[in-house]
Amino acid sequence: MTFSSKNLQKIEQLKKKYPKVEALTLPLLWIVQYQEGYISLDAIKEVAKYCNKSAMEVYSVASFYTMFNLQPVGKYHIQVCKTLSCKLCGQEDIFSSLKNILDINTNQTTDDNLFTLSQVECLGSCGTSPVMEINDKYYENLTPQKVEDIINDLSKKS
């Protein structure tokens, strides 16, 4: 894996913002994830070159944070919040509708590689629960009907 020229420029900008290059670890892992869709071992070796670390050190960081995908995921990564405030407001119905519509279980990807379904801990959206995040976008105050519409829309777009 190599960084695109646009991302190389971004990295040069980032270097100026931190006192040490070690601090670039998380920002660079994010850049990789947006560029490649997930973080491969090859990409980890590349990141290590820029932040004065061994590949093993970068791997230990990447594997600590749940948002870094070390395996490929579908085009749309659905993360459904499962923590208490969402549970009290009907999270279980939302999750089972998603399972039914997509015909997959948690941590699985649909055969067309469009959707990956994950259950995650508190998304900080307790006042508008139940909630899910698809890629970078929050979907709040969900109902099973809304979920169906959202998935249909995304399927049509692709």
Binding site: L26, P27, L29, W30, Y65, T66, F68, C122
Partner: peptide, 12 residues
């Protein structure tokens, strides 16, 4: 004065 946003990656 500079402000830089640093993004975490999912760790309470």
């Amino acid at each position: 004065l500079d402000i830089t946003i640093h993004r975490g990656a999912g760790a309470y």
